[in-house]
Structure formats: structure tokens, C-alpha cells
């Protein structure tokens, strides 16, 4: 077996984009800060540095996609895309459907989510569940460099608008990257650690916190199964249900606040299904961000965001 190389989360995404750009000349990348590797490898006009105009760029991606291109627009921080909401909500998400499926709009919006970077409320948020209401967008949220690379390739090849959420805090985190052209299908959760006692579904940064919690609890004889859905639309609820059948206990860990969230949706889907409801031996427990805009001061931000200790508390509470 050949040795796997290591890449950071961000570099893995850029590598995935670069590999796809080599294969398909219709792919181009627009952002207010062009990734250096893409600029060096492809340059203008396929890699464009743009005005700070997220609304226009989002709409332009739609128009270019209608013209046979496969644009990638990097909004950068997710909070910046809120100025483009008409183009995201009314145009990108609905345009295929409301025109009766006449044409395809293959486009990818990249954006970073999360916090923990001491940049306060307007530069920190995890609002992916808002986008889950916008039927018509596929939503990706990887937690490792390998997943990020494999999923960005699938996102680019998909014929629909895809929002590719990148966990900002994971950007520099390194991990092994499989060799070759490895894409990862949408709608396929990954069991990051197997365990028989409790299922923890975790998103993005929280996957790593859950794995740390599992490691610690393992020393005390509690075996935690950690599942990363990886894509929110489509959501692989079956893998989660299978795990619940095995463990009978479910904890959901997400940085976003609890209201109308991914964690709420997963919990609802598990309890509204008779079989998985029956399998539960205890109430579902959610570990989420608190209901506050993300504050600046480390002591405040660290309090608002959940972490491994809160996951451990939640597990203890229901076991």
C-alpha cells in the first residue's frame, strides 16, 4: 500500500478543485481572494479575483451556469452571504424547479462556518439549518481533509446548486488524503468511530470533540459510536437509525443553536419513526451552541460553544 500524503483541510479542498478544473474546462472560481494554488495553476480567466459583491457574484454564478459553465463562488465567511440572500433563496434554490426543470444549474458556493476564532458575531455563525429550509440546495459540511476533498469533487460534478460549508476552525488541521481520484457520494454518513453504548451524531468541528470525548469515555468502559452525516441535504438518516438500533442512545452535537436546527431535525426524524423510537432507551440529548450571537471575549465565546466536556456530560446524563 502506498503511503498516504497529508494535507490541511483547506488545501485538500483546493486540491479537489484543482483536480476537477484540470478535467473540466467549464469550471471557474470566483472569490474576493483567489486561492494562490489555483491562481498559479490556472490563472485568469478561470480563477478570478472579484469585487466584494456577494449578491452579484451569486447571481452571476447562476447566469454562467445557465450558459454551460460550472462556477464556484467562494463567499468566504457565511455571514457575508447574507447580503446575497435573494440570489440564494429566490433564485439559486428555486430556479430549476420553477422553470419546470428546463435547464441545469451546476454551481458551488463555498463558505466557512463556525467560530472559535475570536472574531465575534458578524464573523462567526453556523446557520446551515436555515439553508435546509430552502428546498433546492444541496448542503455539504465535511469534518476532515479527506472528506472535504472527496466531497468538493462531488459538489463540482453535481448538476445542482451546492452550498459547501467549510468549518473555519478546521482550515489548518491536517489529515491523510487517499491517493487517486477519490470522490465521496452525497447522502452517505461516515461512522468515524464504532461503539456499542451510545451514538453521537456530530457536525464539523464537533466531530473532533466527539472523538475526543469517545476516547476519554472508552477508558471508563463506555464505547461511543461517532457518526458524521457529512451532507445535510441529502441527509443519511438510515445510518443514524441503524446506529440507534445498536446503541439505544442518541446524542447530537452541533455548534449551531438548538432551535430549528440540524439537531432538531435529526431528533424529530428518529422519534417520528416507530422503530427507532422504540429502540431508544433514554431521551435524546442535544449538545448545541447557546442562544446568543457569538461573543468576542475568549471566556464568553468558549462558554457559548459546546465542547467535549459537554458531550461527555450529555452522554453520562442519558446512559
Amino acid at each position: 500500500m502506498t503511503e498516504m500524503k497529508e494535507l490541511s483541510y483547506v488545501d485538500a479542498i483546493i486540491e479537489g478543485i484543482a483536480e476537477e478544473m484540470v478535467v473540466d474546462p467549464k469550471i471557474f472560481h470566483m472569490s474576493t481572494e483567489a486561492p494562490r494554488r489555483l491562481q498559479e495553476e490556472f490563472g485568469f480567466p478561470r480563477v478570478r479575483q472579484t469585487p466584494i459583491a456577494e449578491s452579484a457574484l451569486t447571481g452571476m454564478a447562476i447566469g454562467a451556469a445557465a450558459g454551460g459553465y460550472r462556477p464556484i463562488v467562494d463567499w468566504r465567511l457565511v455571514t457575508f452571504c447574507f447580503v446575497a440572500m435573494d440570489q440564494i433563496v429566490n433564485q439559486a434554490a428555486k430556479i430549476h424547479y420553477m422553470f419546470g426543470g428546463q435547464t441545469r444549474f451546476p454551481l458551488v458556493f463555498r463558505t466557512t462556518v463556525g467560530g472559535g476564532t475570536r472574531r465575534a458575531a458578524q464573523h462567526s455563525q453556523s446557520p446551515y439549518s436555515m439553508f435546509m429550509q430552502l428546498t433546492g440546495l444541496k448542503l455539504v459540511l465535511p469534518s476532515t481533509p479527506a472528506d472535504a476533498k472527496g466531497l468538493i469533487k462531488t459538489a463540482i460534478r453535481d448538476d445542482n446548486p451546492v452550498v459547501f460549508f467549510e468549518a473555519g476552525r478546521l482550515g489548518g488541521v491536517k489529515g491523510p488524503i487517499p491517493n487517486g481520484d477519490v470522490s465521496i457520494p452525497f447522502g452517505k454518513a461516515d461512522v468515524k468511530r464504532e461503539g456499542k453504548d451510545v451514538t453521537v451524531v456530530a457536525l464539523a468541528w464537533m466531530v473532533h470533540e466527539a472523538l475526543a470525548a469517545a476516547e476519554e469515555l472508552s477508558k471508563q468502559g463506555i464505547e461511543v459510536e461517532v457518526i458524521d452525516p457529512r451532507t445535510l441535504v441529502p441527509l443519511d438518516i438510515e445510518t443514524i437509525r441503524s446506529s440507534v438500533f445498536k446503541t439505544g442512545h442518541l446524542v447530537i452535537a452541533d455548534e449551531a443553536p438548538a432551535a430549528a436546527s440540524v439537531s432538531a431535525d435529526i431528533a424529530a426524524r428518529i422519534v417520528e419513526d416507530a422503530a427507532s423510537f422504540e429502540a431508544l432507551k433514554a431521551p435524546i440529548s442535544r449538545v448545541t451552541g447557546l442562544d446568543a450571537p457569538i461573543p468576542y471575549s475568549p471566556s464568553l465565546e468558549d462558554y457559548v460553544f459546546p465542547d467535549r466536556s459537554r458531550i461527555i456530560e450529555a452522554i453520562r446524563r442519558i446512559l
Binding site: T58, M60, I62, G63
Partner: peptide, 10 residues
């Protein structure tokens, strides 16, 4: 307006 601008870019 921005969608047609993207069509122009294409």
C-alpha cells in the same frame, strides 16, 4: 440583473 451579468460573463 446579476444573473444576466453572469450570462454575459459566460
Amino acid at each position: 440583473i446579476s444573473i444576466i451579468t453572469g450570462a454575459g460573463l459566460a
